[in-house]
Write a protein that binds this DNA or RNA. Structure first.
Lengths: 237, 237
DNA sequence: CATTTATATTTATCCTATAATAAACCTTGA
DNA sequence: TCAAGGTTTATTATAGGATAAATATAAATG
């Protein structure tokens, strides 16, 4: 009794994720207003041609990310925007899928400017031996790719570099940024690849400071990188 | 066929949340190792004395927060710590419940130091008229309570003040911090209430700068507040 | 009018059956 | 022996229907 249309349209993911994605789209786009009660389970099951099981798992998923809240007799309500966890990589993916991403990109850059320099400082202090090895290996690749430029490869290694910085902070609260960052990098053409420029110098400064354990220098170097980062229009989708 | 023990032990929440909380506890405490396959659905259903439906909803909840990943035939695997979304208020709640929170508190303070000054700066630039009214009203209360001191009330209004700063940034990525902050404030006795000192002067500086639209001053004022914030032992739970 | 009780609606939970998936285990043929 | 390809099997995914719990609303009651 599957509806093959949904399977195709929603890529290859599991059914409840596809349903969750579609409901999320309606919420994030404003098509379903905040504080509004969405249709009852039965109605939604028919709309999506899925069982109650799948639908309810979708709703649980969205509830977990702060988009919905269910009560018996009342129904399932769209929570206000304040509760949406934009620092969840999956939710961010859904946001990006809406298109119109210049604002998302700008807001993310504003977040990076706050958080990343401090992350670099913490990494300089707290990175483990193994993390330093990983960071080192990644920077080697950056260096190589900056000389034999390839936009796609640069994006990947650039992403990995910054991801490792977050993972090396030794602070649990910085870990989620790693995934959010990856989601953003994968969705947008890296701004720093503009005109083939790879900011290798700025990255080297961050890398060296972290390896040297110089927190202040790492912080400043990362701030400089982000200051030079000039906002590019997203080109994906 | 409910198991009343679980109902009592896990407070009044819905069943699948109670199950999720218990599984989360095992994962967060390390009792269930990273990358380990947890017991199959049937086994867990028996362990918790719940139906597959409830159990599966629990697993979906944990999957959404990056703690688990399920595959047919393979089983459900505990994801590595990098994937745990510590910036999810519910997950943070579970972390705090483990006790041993001095580290959590320190790490959170490190995050605040990075993010909050910038949030204050953004709020100074972007707060709407309505948000300024709310912030104003909240600061009035702070002022009053600082003179007629009450630790509990001060915690609440202090929390509300900083929450409003995050909500006033006009940046989606800053919104989740509001909820995380509230979770932390509710779980720990506010550090700033030490010896009846309420940092009202520091808060006034932040408040005034935001109301005046002076981003730089707001940033600096918030940084000063956090610099003076001296780490107290958590005393709750 | 206030307060309690009854009712109806919706989600919550339980249960069982079937489908999809992929790892592990067999063939089978060179 | 061993590699390719099909088969079995264990596990999650999905379906669907039944019962329980919760609660907003309406009705009854004092």
């Amino acid at each position: 009794m599957h509806n093959p249309f949904i399977q195709i349209a929603g890529s290859k993911r599991s059914l409840h994720v596809q349903v969750a994605r579609e409901i999320a789209r309606k919420i994030l786009s404003g098509e379903a207003a905040q504080n509004e009660i969405i249709p009852s389970e039965m109605v939604l099951c028919e709309q999506f041609s899925v069982s109650r099981t799948a639908l309810r798992e979708a709703i649980k998923l969205l509830t977990s990310k702060g988009l919905l809240e269910s009560k018996p007799k009342v129904g399932t309500r769209v929570k206000s925007r304040d509760n949406w966890n934009f620092l969840d990589a999956q939710l961010l993916d859904w946001v990006i899928d809406l298109g119109d991403n210049e604002i998302v990109y700008q807001e993310f850059l504003a977040l990076r400017k706050a958080i990343e320099p401090e992350a670099a400082a913490l990494a300089a202090k707290n990175a483990t031996a193994q993390q330093r090895i990983l960071l080192s290996a990644t920077f080697q690749q950056m260096d190589y790719i900056s000389k034999n430029f390839d936009a796609q490869k640069w994006m990947e290694v650039d992403m990995e570099f910054h991801r490792l910085v977050f993972l090396s902070t030794g602070n649990s609260f910085y870990l989620p940024f790693a995934n959010v960052l990856c989601t953003m990098f994968r969705s947008f053409i890296s701004h720093s690849s503009e005109k083939g420029g790879t900011c290798i110098g700025e990255h080297r400064a961050i890398y060296s400071a972290i390896m040297a354990g110089d927190a202040d220098k790492a912080r400043e170097a990362n701030a400089i990188l982000l200051k030079n980062t000039n906002h590019r229009l997203p080109t994906s989708n």
